[in-house]
Structure formats: structure tokens, C-alpha cells
């Protein structure tokens, strides 16, 4: 199996980001919230990427920011996946009124843009990590629901599922032992895309001031706090934005490759 260069680059970068996120406390040269230098210092041997609008080390904040951004996005996408695939498979297997009820509620949720729903919810709910993960995860589970319901509906009519039903297996067996293993490959690629979506979503919310709150820092919030620096021409203010872009693009490259691989496995035209 030959891995294309783009996917390899994507994997190396994604792995690098995850490594940094896990070991942030050991890697970061300075504490996250202490002003350790002057305001807007240029990159130097002491501060590799310079300092921000109140003199904190940008590199350290980026490293801690990776941790928060990736953790929230990962938790939200895992939640959306667990919820979306379970309900999607259940809807496809059981059919009837349950399928109708689930599908119509998802239609309703998808009739409003996620950002608007999130804003309306966050005007009432307290702003903390749990709420953010729940809001993003539940809103995003609608898309997973549609995909997994469609995939499972294709599989549910296969002979081996019929056979399992005829020998009297229960709903959970059919979902976890018959459908899930066969639906795994399209869902893995989708997981990458959902993760990117969650990264962009949490960054956007933080940028709007409605996501991660201080003393925690994430990349979207860093863009917000350093926006004035940009107008005065400080390139360092662009670094958190560049980090978001780099993470999104590298995960995308990997997901793209998995997607083409799985579609060629299924005998589709692929490429």
C-alpha cells in the first residue's frame, strides 16, 4: 500500500499537533497566563515567537491552546459520533415511527444554521467546557445521524442481516455485531471531517467571545485578544489563525485519503 505524499504530510502534522496537545505542560517554555516579557516583543532566542498584547509568550499560549482546542473538538466529535451513529443505526434498523420521529427532529434541527442555534442556546446556558462540548456535539450529531442512517439502511437489507434477524438476534446485536463493522470505513473518514468541523466551531465561538473563557486559552480566543496587534502590523497576531488553518488542512488531507481509499474498496470509481 502506497501512502500518497499529501496524506503523509497530513499524518505527520496531525500527529505533531496531538503530541503537542498531550504534552503541553512539559513542552511549553513559560506558564500560560504570566506576562513574562514586554508588550509585542519581536521573536527572539528567549521568546521564539515573540510576546502578545500584554507580554505573554505566544509560543507557550499556542501550545496550551492546542491542548484546549483539540480536547474540546475531540470530545465534541466523539459525542456527536456516539450519539449520531447509535440513533442513526437504530432508526435504520427499527424503521417505522421511531425512524420517522428521529428523522423529522433531525430535519428540524438542520433547518436552522448550527451557529445560530448555538448562539441562542449560549445566551441562556452557562459558558463552561461541558456545555460547549454538549452544544457542539449534539448539534453536529445531526450530520452523523444522516450519514449513518443512510449507510445502515443500505446494510440492513443485506442477506446476513436478514439471517441474523431470522435466527432471532435482538436490536443491539444487529447494530453492534452486524452493521457497525461493515459501516466502519465510511464513518472513519467522516470522523475526520466532523473533528475539523468541531475545531472550526469552537474556534469561531471563542473568537466571538462565547467559547473558552479565561484563564483557559484556545486558538480562536487568541485571535480575538490579539486582533489589535494585527492592525498595527504585528504578524505574530496571525499565528493562532495559522495554527487553526494548519490543523484543519492536515486532518482534511488524511480524511480525504481515507475517503478515496474506502470508496475504491467498495468498488466505486474512487479518485
Amino acid at each position: 500500500m502506497r501512502i500518497p505524499l499529501s496524506a503523509l504530510i497530513g499524518m505527520i502534522f496531525t500527529g505533531g499537533f496531538i503530541f503537542v496537545a498531550i504534552f503541553a505542560h512539559w513542552i511549553a517554555p513559560y506558564p500560560i497566563n504570566d506576562p513574562v516579557g514586554g508588550v509585542w516583543e519581536a521573536p527572539s532566542a528567549q521568546f521564539w515567537l515573540g510576546t502578545d498584547t500584554i507580554g505573554r509568550d505566544i509560543l507557550s499560549r499556542l501550545i496550551y491552546g492546542a491542548q484546549v482546542t483539540i480536547f474540546v473538538a475531540l470530545a465534541a466529535s466523539i459525542l456527536s459520533f456516539a450519539l449520531g451513529t447509535f440513533l442513526g443505526f437504530t432508526a435504520a434498523v427499527s424503521g417505522g415511527w421511531l425512524d420517522q420521529a428521529l428523522s423529522r427532529s433531525v430535519d428540524l434541527m438542520m433547518a436552522i444554521p448550527s451557529l445560530i442555534v448555538a448562539l441562542v442556546l449560549l445566551s441562556v446556558l452557562p459558558l463552561n467546557l461541558t456545555v460547549l462540548v454538549l452544544v457542539i456535539g449534539i448539534l453536529d450529531s445531526t450530520r452523523v445521524f444522516r450519514l449513518s442512517r443512510a449507510v445502515a439502511a443500505d446494510i440492513a437489507v443485506m442477506e446476513y442481516v436478514e439471517a441474523a434477524k431470522l435466527r432471532g438476534e435482538k436490536g443491539n446485536w444487529i447494530i453492534f455485531k452486524e452493521i457497525l463493522p461493515n459501516a466502519l470505513s465510511p464513518l472513519v473518514a467522516e470522523f475526520g471531517l466532523r473533528f475539523i468541523f468541531a475545531v472550526l466551531f469552537i474556534s469561531t465561538l471563542s473568537f466571538l467571545g462565547l467559547g473558552i473563557q479565561p484563564p483557559l486559552a484556545d486558538w480562536g480566543g487568541m485571535v480575538k485578544e490579539n486582533r489589535d496587534g494585527l492592525i498595527y502590523g504585528k504578524t505574530a497576531a496571525m499565528l493562532p489563525a495559522a495554527a487553526i488553518a494548519a490543523l484543519a488542512i492536515s486532518v482534511n488531507l488524511v480524511a480525504d485519503w481515507i475517503l478515496t481509499r474506502t470508496s475504491s474498496l467498495k468498488g466505486g470509481r474512487g479518485g
Binding site: 474556534s203 469561531t204 492592525i231 504578524t235 488542512i249 482534511n252
Partner: peptide, 22 residues
């Protein structure tokens, strides 16, 4: 493809930096 992977506010700051500041 590269603009698809970027959130709106990142595109916003890139455009602001290039055309507004530089």
C-alpha cells in the same frame, strides 16, 4: 480547497492583513 478548510474569521484576518494593513 484551501479556502474551504479555513474558518471565516481566519480568512477575514488574512484579507484584512493583506489588503487593509500591508
Amino acid at each position: 480547497l484551501s479556502t474551504i478548510s479555513l474558518p471565516e474569521f481566519v480568512v477575514g484576518y488574512i484579507v484584512m492583513y493583506i489588503f487593509g494593513v500591508k
